[in-house]
Design a protein around this nucleic acid. Structure first.
Length: 422
DNA sequence: TCTGGGGTCCTAGGACCC
DNA sequence: TCTGGGGTCCTAGGACCC
Protein backbone atom coordinates (compact mmCIF):
# COMPACT_ATOMS: atom_id res chain seq x y z
CA UNK A 1 0.00 0.00 0.00
CA UNK A 2 1.33 3.40 -0.93
CA UNK A 3 2.17 5.49 2.10
CA UNK A 4 0.40 8.79 2.65
CA UNK A 5 2.03 11.28 4.98
CA UNK A 6 0.13 14.22 6.37
CA UNK A 7 1.48 17.27 8.14
CA UNK A 8 -0.64 19.47 10.37
CA UNK A 9 0.86 22.77 11.41
CA UNK A 10 -0.66 25.46 13.62
CA UNK A 11 -1.03 28.94 12.19
CA UNK A 12 1.06 31.52 14.07
CA UNK A 13 1.03 29.02 16.93
CA UNK A 14 2.27 31.15 19.84
CA UNK A 15 0.04 34.06 18.81
CA UNK A 16 -2.91 31.72 18.42
CA UNK A 17 -2.32 30.44 21.96
CA UNK A 18 -2.44 34.00 23.29
CA UNK A 19 -5.65 34.66 21.38
CA UNK A 20 -7.42 31.66 22.89
CA UNK A 21 -7.52 33.32 26.29
CA UNK A 22 -7.60 36.94 25.19
CA UNK A 23 -10.36 37.17 22.59
CA UNK A 24 -9.83 40.91 22.22
CA UNK A 25 -6.71 40.00 20.23
CA UNK A 26 -8.79 38.51 17.44
CA UNK A 27 -8.11 40.37 14.19
CA UNK A 28 -5.40 42.50 15.83
CA UNK A 29 -1.74 42.31 14.79
CA UNK A 30 0.01 40.21 17.45
CA UNK A 31 3.63 39.15 17.86
CA UNK A 32 5.28 36.88 20.40
CA UNK A 33 8.91 37.59 21.20
CA UNK A 34 11.81 35.25 21.85
CA UNK A 35 13.43 34.94 25.25
CA UNK A 36 14.64 38.20 26.72
CA UNK A 37 11.98 39.94 24.59
CA UNK A 38 14.55 39.90 21.81
CA UNK A 39 13.14 39.00 18.40
CA UNK A 40 9.72 38.48 16.85
CA UNK A 41 9.33 34.70 16.56
CA UNK A 42 5.59 34.41 15.93
CA UNK A 43 3.38 36.84 14.01
CA UNK A 44 -0.26 36.78 13.09
CA UNK A 45 -1.31 37.43 9.50
CA UNK A 46 -2.12 41.02 10.48
CA UNK A 47 1.37 41.49 11.93
CA UNK A 48 3.02 39.95 8.85
CA UNK A 49 1.02 42.35 6.71
CA UNK A 50 2.63 45.24 8.58
CA UNK A 51 6.02 44.02 7.43
CA UNK A 52 7.24 42.36 10.63
CA UNK A 53 9.67 39.60 9.67
CA UNK A 54 10.59 36.43 11.50
CA UNK A 55 13.55 37.21 13.75
CA UNK A 56 13.25 40.99 13.57
CA UNK A 57 14.88 42.55 16.65
CA UNK A 58 11.90 43.98 18.49
CA UNK A 59 13.66 46.92 20.14
CA UNK A 60 14.73 48.14 16.69
CA UNK A 61 11.49 47.75 14.79
CA UNK A 62 8.91 48.65 17.43
CA UNK A 63 9.75 52.30 17.02
CA UNK A 64 8.22 52.32 13.54
CA UNK A 65 5.04 54.41 13.80
CA UNK A 66 2.89 51.93 11.88
CA UNK A 67 3.67 49.31 14.53
CA UNK A 68 2.38 51.35 17.46
CA UNK A 69 -0.82 49.29 17.69
CA UNK A 70 0.88 45.89 17.52
CA UNK A 71 0.11 43.73 20.55
CA UNK A 72 3.26 41.99 21.76
CA UNK A 73 3.95 39.28 24.31
CA UNK A 74 6.91 37.61 25.95
CA UNK A 75 7.17 33.87 25.29
CA UNK A 76 4.94 31.85 27.60
CA UNK A 77 6.25 28.33 27.06
CA UNK A 78 4.21 26.82 29.86
CA UNK A 79 1.08 27.88 27.96
CA UNK A 80 2.32 26.88 24.50
CA UNK A 81 3.54 23.48 25.65
CA UNK A 82 0.18 22.72 27.20
CA UNK A 83 -1.76 23.89 24.14
CA UNK A 84 0.47 21.70 22.00
CA UNK A 85 -0.40 18.73 24.18
CA UNK A 86 -4.12 19.45 23.68
CA UNK A 87 -3.67 19.65 19.94
CA UNK A 88 -1.89 16.30 19.96
CA UNK A 89 -4.67 14.80 22.06
CA UNK A 90 -7.36 15.72 19.55
CA UNK A 91 -5.34 14.20 16.70
CA UNK A 92 -4.32 11.05 18.55
CA UNK A 93 -7.99 10.27 19.16
CA UNK A 94 -8.77 10.47 15.44
CA UNK A 95 -5.70 9.25 13.52
CA UNK A 96 -4.01 5.87 14.13
CA UNK A 97 -0.48 7.26 14.18
CA UNK A 98 0.63 10.77 15.08
CA UNK A 99 4.30 11.78 15.18
CA UNK A 100 5.00 15.05 17.00
CA UNK A 101 7.60 16.93 15.02
CA UNK A 102 7.80 20.27 16.81
CA UNK A 103 5.74 22.15 19.35
CA UNK A 104 3.19 23.11 16.68
CA UNK A 105 3.55 20.42 14.00
CA UNK A 106 2.66 16.76 13.80
CA UNK A 107 3.05 14.21 11.05
CA UNK A 108 0.00 12.03 10.48
CA UNK A 109 0.04 8.55 8.99
CA UNK A 110 -2.90 8.69 6.57
CA UNK A 111 -1.97 5.48 4.76
CA UNK A 112 -4.94 3.33 3.79
CA UNK A 113 -7.57 5.37 5.60
CA UNK A 114 -11.02 4.78 4.13
CA UNK A 115 -13.09 7.53 2.59
CA UNK A 116 -12.19 10.85 1.08
CA UNK A 117 -8.93 12.23 2.51
CA UNK A 118 -9.83 15.83 1.80
CA UNK A 119 -13.04 15.50 3.78
CA UNK A 120 -11.24 13.75 6.59
CA UNK A 121 -8.50 16.39 6.83
CA UNK A 122 -11.04 19.20 6.74
CA UNK A 123 -12.88 17.66 9.67
CA UNK A 124 -9.62 17.03 11.56
CA UNK A 125 -8.81 20.66 11.15
CA UNK A 126 -12.28 21.66 12.34
CA UNK A 127 -11.97 19.43 15.40
CA UNK A 128 -8.60 20.90 16.39
CA UNK A 129 -10.06 24.35 15.98
CA UNK A 130 -13.20 23.54 17.95
CA UNK A 131 -11.66 21.54 20.78
CA UNK A 132 -8.07 22.80 21.16
CA UNK A 133 -9.02 26.25 19.79
CA UNK A 134 -6.02 26.35 17.48
CA UNK A 135 -6.24 27.20 13.76
CA UNK A 136 -4.16 24.90 11.53
CA UNK A 137 -3.41 23.83 7.97
CA UNK A 138 -2.96 20.28 6.72
CA UNK A 139 -0.98 19.08 3.72
CA UNK A 140 -0.39 15.54 2.52
CA UNK A 141 1.36 13.45 -0.10
CA UNK A 142 3.52 10.35 -0.65
CA UNK A 143 6.53 11.56 1.40
CA UNK A 144 7.14 13.74 4.43
CA UNK A 145 8.92 16.36 2.36
CA UNK A 146 5.96 16.58 -0.03
CA UNK A 147 3.56 16.77 2.92
CA UNK A 148 5.57 19.69 4.32
CA UNK A 149 5.44 21.42 0.97
CA UNK A 150 1.70 20.81 0.71
CA UNK A 151 1.26 22.31 4.15
CA UNK A 152 3.13 25.44 3.11
CA UNK A 153 0.95 25.74 0.02
CA UNK A 154 -2.20 25.45 2.13
CA UNK A 155 -0.86 28.26 4.35
CA UNK A 156 0.02 30.56 1.50
CA UNK A 157 -3.25 30.05 -0.39
CA UNK A 158 -6.23 30.76 1.87
CA UNK A 159 -8.60 29.89 -0.99
CA UNK A 160 -7.63 26.22 -0.52
CA UNK A 161 -9.52 26.21 2.77
CA UNK A 162 -6.55 25.17 4.89
CA UNK A 163 -5.82 21.85 3.18
CA UNK A 164 -3.67 20.79 0.25
CA UNK A 165 -3.40 17.41 -1.43
CA UNK A 166 -0.18 16.75 -3.37
CA UNK A 167 -0.82 13.06 -4.03
CA UNK A 168 -1.33 13.62 -7.74
CA UNK A 169 2.03 13.97 -9.59
CA UNK A 170 0.46 16.28 -12.17
CA UNK A 171 -0.63 18.72 -9.47
CA UNK A 172 2.79 18.47 -7.84
CA UNK A 173 4.49 19.31 -11.11
CA UNK A 174 2.54 22.51 -11.52
CA UNK A 175 3.71 23.68 -8.09
CA UNK A 176 7.26 22.39 -8.63
CA UNK A 177 7.65 24.53 -11.72
CA UNK A 178 6.37 27.65 -9.98
CA UNK A 179 8.04 27.47 -6.55
CA UNK A 180 11.66 28.40 -5.76
CA UNK A 181 13.79 25.55 -4.43
CA UNK A 182 14.32 27.40 -1.14
CA UNK A 183 10.68 26.64 -0.22
CA UNK A 184 11.57 23.00 0.29
CA UNK A 185 11.96 21.55 3.79
CA UNK A 186 15.69 20.86 4.21
CA UNK A 187 16.88 23.44 1.69
CA UNK A 188 17.99 26.41 3.75
CA UNK A 189 19.37 29.70 2.52
CA UNK A 190 22.96 28.45 2.05
CA UNK A 191 21.87 25.45 0.02
CA UNK A 192 19.41 27.53 -2.00
CA UNK A 193 22.19 29.93 -2.95
CA UNK A 194 24.47 27.05 -3.96
CA UNK A 195 21.74 25.56 -6.11
CA UNK A 196 20.89 28.87 -7.75
CA UNK A 197 24.54 29.47 -8.58
CA UNK A 198 24.58 26.07 -10.25
CA UNK A 199 21.51 27.03 -12.27
CA UNK A 200 18.81 25.28 -10.26
CA UNK A 201 16.18 27.83 -9.32
CA UNK A 202 12.81 26.10 -9.06
CA UNK A 203 11.89 22.87 -7.34
CA UNK A 204 11.52 21.32 -10.80
CA UNK A 205 15.08 22.39 -11.71
CA UNK A 206 16.31 20.74 -8.51
CA UNK A 207 14.47 17.50 -9.16
CA UNK A 208 15.89 17.31 -12.67
CA UNK A 209 19.47 17.88 -11.48
CA UNK A 210 21.82 14.85 -11.79
CA UNK A 211 22.07 12.96 -8.51
CA UNK A 212 25.90 13.09 -8.28
CA UNK A 213 25.82 16.84 -8.69
CA UNK A 214 23.22 17.20 -5.94
CA UNK A 215 25.34 15.01 -3.74
CA UNK A 216 28.40 17.11 -4.48
CA UNK A 217 26.60 20.33 -3.63
CA UNK A 218 24.45 19.26 -0.69
CA UNK A 219 25.81 15.87 0.49
CA UNK A 220 23.56 12.90 1.14
CA UNK A 221 21.07 15.17 2.88
CA UNK A 222 20.27 16.98 -0.36
CA UNK A 223 20.19 13.70 -2.23
CA UNK A 224 17.56 12.43 0.17
CA UNK A 225 15.49 15.59 -0.18
CA UNK A 226 15.60 15.26 -3.94
CA UNK A 227 14.40 11.66 -3.78
CA UNK A 228 11.60 12.61 -1.41
CA UNK A 229 10.42 15.31 -3.81
CA UNK A 230 10.41 12.70 -6.57
CA UNK A 231 7.97 10.72 -4.46
CA UNK A 232 10.44 8.18 -3.05
CA UNK A 233 9.96 8.05 0.73
CA UNK A 234 13.28 8.18 2.61
CA UNK A 235 12.09 9.59 5.92
CA UNK A 236 9.94 6.99 7.64
CA UNK A 237 7.16 7.55 10.09
CA UNK A 238 8.56 7.43 13.63
CA UNK A 239 6.29 6.03 16.31
CA UNK A 240 8.49 6.48 19.35
CA UNK A 241 10.64 9.55 19.87
CA UNK A 242 14.35 8.82 19.46
CA UNK A 243 16.58 8.92 22.51
CA UNK A 244 17.80 12.39 23.35
CA UNK A 245 21.44 13.04 22.49
CA UNK A 246 21.94 16.35 24.25
CA UNK A 247 20.28 18.70 26.68
CA UNK A 248 21.15 22.37 26.85
CA UNK A 249 20.29 25.42 28.87
CA UNK A 250 21.61 28.64 27.39
CA UNK A 251 20.38 32.20 27.88
CA UNK A 252 21.10 35.79 27.03
CA UNK A 253 21.20 37.99 30.10
CA UNK A 254 18.76 40.81 30.78
CA UNK A 255 21.79 43.06 31.14
CA UNK A 256 25.52 42.45 30.63
CA UNK A 257 27.35 40.52 33.33
CA UNK A 258 30.70 41.97 34.39
CA UNK A 259 31.19 40.35 37.79
CA UNK A 260 32.46 36.84 38.33
CA UNK A 261 30.02 36.07 41.13
CA UNK A 262 27.09 36.84 38.83
CA UNK A 263 28.45 34.67 36.04
CA UNK A 264 28.93 31.88 38.54
CA UNK A 265 25.30 32.25 39.60
CA UNK A 266 24.14 32.20 36.00
CA UNK A 267 26.07 29.03 35.15
CA UNK A 268 24.85 27.38 38.35
CA UNK A 269 21.28 28.33 37.39
CA UNK A 270 21.63 26.82 33.93
CA UNK A 271 23.27 23.68 35.30
CA UNK A 272 20.39 23.33 37.77
CA UNK A 273 17.80 23.64 35.01
CA UNK A 274 19.69 21.21 32.75
CA UNK A 275 19.91 18.70 35.60
CA UNK A 276 16.15 18.98 36.13
CA UNK A 277 15.56 18.22 32.48
CA UNK A 278 17.88 15.21 32.73
CA UNK A 279 15.98 13.76 35.66
CA UNK A 280 12.60 14.44 34.07
CA UNK A 281 13.66 12.25 31.19
CA UNK A 282 15.29 9.61 33.34
CA UNK A 283 18.76 10.32 31.97
CA UNK A 284 22.24 11.07 33.19
CA UNK A 285 25.04 12.87 31.36
CA UNK A 286 28.63 11.80 30.82
CA UNK A 287 29.81 15.01 29.19
CA UNK A 288 29.39 18.65 30.12
CA UNK A 289 30.28 21.83 28.24
CA UNK A 290 29.99 25.48 29.23
CA UNK A 291 30.43 28.62 27.16
CA UNK A 292 30.15 32.37 27.52
CA UNK A 293 30.50 35.30 25.16
CA UNK A 294 30.09 39.06 24.92
CA UNK A 295 27.52 40.76 22.69
CA UNK A 296 28.23 39.88 19.04
CA UNK A 297 26.08 42.81 17.85
CA UNK A 298 27.86 45.50 19.86
CA UNK A 299 30.31 46.94 17.38
CA UNK A 300 33.38 48.47 18.97
CA UNK A 301 32.88 46.68 22.26
CA UNK A 302 35.71 44.25 23.14
CA UNK A 303 34.79 40.74 22.12
CA UNK A 304 35.55 37.64 24.09
CA UNK A 305 34.17 34.14 23.94
CA UNK A 306 35.24 30.98 25.64
CA UNK A 307 34.16 27.39 25.98
CA UNK A 308 35.28 24.32 27.79
CA UNK A 309 34.07 20.75 27.91
CA UNK A 310 34.94 17.54 29.69
CA UNK A 311 33.92 13.95 30.18
CA UNK A 312 32.50 13.33 33.62
CA UNK A 313 31.35 10.39 35.67
CA UNK A 314 27.74 10.02 34.42
CA UNK A 315 25.37 11.85 36.75
CA UNK A 316 22.14 13.79 36.94
CA UNK A 317 22.85 15.29 40.34
CA UNK A 318 22.34 19.05 40.42
CA UNK A 319 25.08 19.66 42.97
CA UNK A 320 27.66 17.64 41.05
CA UNK A 321 26.77 19.33 37.78
CA UNK A 322 26.97 22.80 39.33
CA UNK A 323 30.42 22.00 40.71
CA UNK A 324 31.62 20.70 37.35
CA UNK A 325 30.13 23.60 35.41
CA UNK A 326 31.68 26.24 37.65
CA UNK A 327 35.02 24.44 37.53
CA UNK A 328 34.86 24.55 33.74
CA UNK A 329 33.84 28.19 33.75
CA UNK A 330 36.79 29.45 35.79
CA UNK A 331 39.48 29.16 33.09
CA UNK A 332 37.32 30.78 30.39
CA UNK A 333 36.21 33.77 32.44
CA UNK A 334 38.10 37.03 31.96
CA UNK A 335 37.68 40.19 33.98
CA UNK A 336 36.85 43.38 32.16
CA UNK A 337 34.36 42.12 29.59
CA UNK A 338 30.62 42.68 29.31
CA UNK A 339 29.22 39.19 28.87
CA UNK A 340 25.88 38.84 27.09
CA UNK A 341 25.21 35.13 27.08
CA UNK A 342 26.29 31.84 28.59
CA UNK A 343 25.15 28.26 28.66
CA UNK A 344 25.54 24.69 29.86
CA UNK A 345 25.28 21.71 27.52
CA UNK A 346 25.04 18.08 28.54
CA UNK A 347 25.69 15.13 26.24
CA UNK A 348 26.72 11.47 26.24
CA UNK A 349 23.30 10.86 27.71
CA UNK A 350 22.31 7.45 28.96
CA UNK A 351 19.45 6.04 30.99
CA UNK A 352 19.90 6.84 34.66
CA UNK A 353 20.23 3.35 35.99
CA UNK A 354 21.95 2.05 39.00
CA UNK A 355 25.41 0.97 37.92
CA UNK A 356 28.56 -0.04 39.69
CA UNK A 357 31.17 2.60 39.12
CA UNK A 358 33.88 4.23 41.17
CA UNK A 359 35.90 2.23 43.58
CA UNK A 360 35.60 5.09 46.05
CA UNK A 361 32.22 6.67 46.43
CA UNK A 362 31.32 9.45 48.78
CA UNK A 363 28.55 9.59 51.29
CA UNK A 364 26.95 12.35 49.26
CA UNK A 365 26.12 9.80 46.55
CA UNK A 366 23.52 8.11 48.64
CA UNK A 367 22.34 11.39 50.11
CA UNK A 368 21.71 12.92 46.71
CA UNK A 369 19.70 9.88 45.67
CA UNK A 370 17.18 11.01 48.23
CA UNK A 371 17.68 14.73 47.88
CA UNK A 372 17.14 15.11 44.12
CA UNK A 373 13.73 13.41 43.98
CA UNK A 374 12.66 15.39 47.05
CA UNK A 375 13.72 18.66 45.44
CA UNK A 376 11.94 17.76 42.21
CA UNK A 377 8.76 16.82 44.04
CA UNK A 378 8.66 20.04 46.03
CA UNK A 379 9.38 22.20 42.99
CA UNK A 380 6.80 20.35 40.92
CA UNK A 381 4.18 21.05 43.52
CA UNK A 382 5.02 24.59 44.60
CA UNK A 383 6.73 25.98 41.54
CA UNK A 384 10.22 26.18 40.08
CA UNK A 385 13.00 27.09 42.51
CA UNK A 386 10.80 26.79 45.58
CA UNK A 387 13.89 25.12 46.89
CA UNK A 388 17.17 25.41 45.05
CA UNK A 389 20.90 25.35 45.65
CA UNK A 390 22.16 28.63 47.10
CA UNK A 391 24.71 28.73 44.26
CA UNK A 392 22.06 29.97 41.84
CA UNK A 393 21.59 33.17 43.86
CA UNK A 394 18.44 34.80 45.16
CA UNK A 395 17.67 37.96 43.19
CA UNK A 396 19.39 37.04 39.90
CA UNK A 397 19.36 40.63 38.61
CA UNK A 398 21.01 39.46 35.37
CA UNK A 399 18.15 37.17 34.39
CA UNK A 400 16.31 37.58 31.11
CA UNK A 401 13.61 40.19 30.60
CA UNK A 402 10.07 38.99 30.19
CA UNK A 403 8.11 42.21 30.34
CA UNK A 404 4.77 41.14 28.91
CA UNK A 405 4.15 37.60 29.97
CA UNK A 406 0.56 36.39 29.77
CA UNK A 407 -0.89 34.25 32.53
CA UNK A 408 -0.42 30.50 32.72
CA UNK A 409 -4.07 30.04 31.87
CA UNK A 410 -4.00 26.26 31.69
CA UNK A 411 -1.25 25.12 34.03
CA UNK A 412 -1.44 27.28 37.15
CA UNK A 413 -4.50 27.39 39.35
CA UNK A 414 -4.11 31.05 40.35
CA UNK A 415 -4.00 32.01 36.67
CA UNK A 416 -7.11 30.19 35.51
CA UNK A 417 -9.76 32.55 34.17
CA UNK A 418 -12.81 32.90 36.40
CA UNK A 419 -16.27 33.23 34.95
CA UNK A 420 -19.19 34.52 36.94
CA UNK A 421 -22.83 33.89 36.19
CA UNK A 422 -25.85 35.05 38.05
C1' DT B 1 66.17 9.30 -3.82
C1' DC B 2 63.17 7.29 -0.98
C1' DT B 3 58.51 7.91 3.04
C1' DG B 4 51.93 2.32 3.27
C1' DG B 5 47.34 1.29 3.91
C1' DG B 6 43.32 0.83 6.28
C1' DG B 7 40.54 1.33 9.96
C1' DT B 8 38.21 3.66 14.24
C1' DC B 9 37.07 7.32 17.23
C1' DC B 10 36.60 12.02 18.51
C1' DT B 11 35.85 16.90 17.76
C1' DA B 12 34.83 21.19 15.51
C1' DG B 13 32.24 23.40 12.37
C1' DG B 14 28.52 23.95 9.22
C1' DA B 15 23.88 23.47 7.80
C1' DC B 16 19.33 22.63 8.76
C1' DC B 17 14.87 22.69 11.46
C1' DC B 18 11.11 25.05 14.47
C1' DT C 1 19.29 49.63 27.18
C1' DC C 2 17.33 46.10 24.60
C1' DT C 3 19.29 41.30 18.39
C1' DG C 4 16.40 33.60 21.09
C1' DG C 5 16.84 28.82 22.42
C1' DG C 6 17.16 23.99 21.66
C1' DG C 7 17.77 20.43 18.90
C1' DT C 8 19.56 17.10 14.76
C1' DC C 9 22.69 15.28 11.23
C1' DC C 10 26.84 15.27 8.19
C1' DT C 11 31.69 16.00 6.96
C1' DA C 12 36.52 16.84 7.36
C1' DG C 13 40.52 16.34 9.74
C1' DG C 14 43.44 14.78 13.44
C1' DA C 15 44.96 11.17 16.67
C1' DC C 16 45.68 6.69 17.19
C1' DC C 17 46.16 1.78 16.16
C1' DC C 18 47.90 -2.36 13.72
Amino acid sequence: MKPVYGLIDANSFYCSCERVFQPRLRLLPVVVLSNNDGCAIARTTEAKALGIKMGDPWHLIRKRPELAAVEWFSSNYALYGDMSRRMYQVLAERVPRVEPYSIDEMFLDLTGLPGDLTERCRSLRDDVRRIAKIPTCIGWGPTKTIAKLANGIAKDNPDLGGVCDLTDPAIRDSYYAALPVGEVWGIGSKSATKLEKAGYRTIQDFIDAPVPEVRGLLTVVGERTQAELRGVSCLPFVDAPADRKSIACTRSFGRPITAWHEMREAIATYATRAAEKLRQQGLQAGHIAVFLHTNPHAKGEPWHSGQKAAQIEPTNDTMVLITQAVRMLKPVWRDGYRYAKAGVMLSNLEPAVERPKQLFFSLSDSQSKLLMPAMDAINARYGRNTISPLAIGIARPWSARSRRLSRQFTTKLEDVLAAQAW
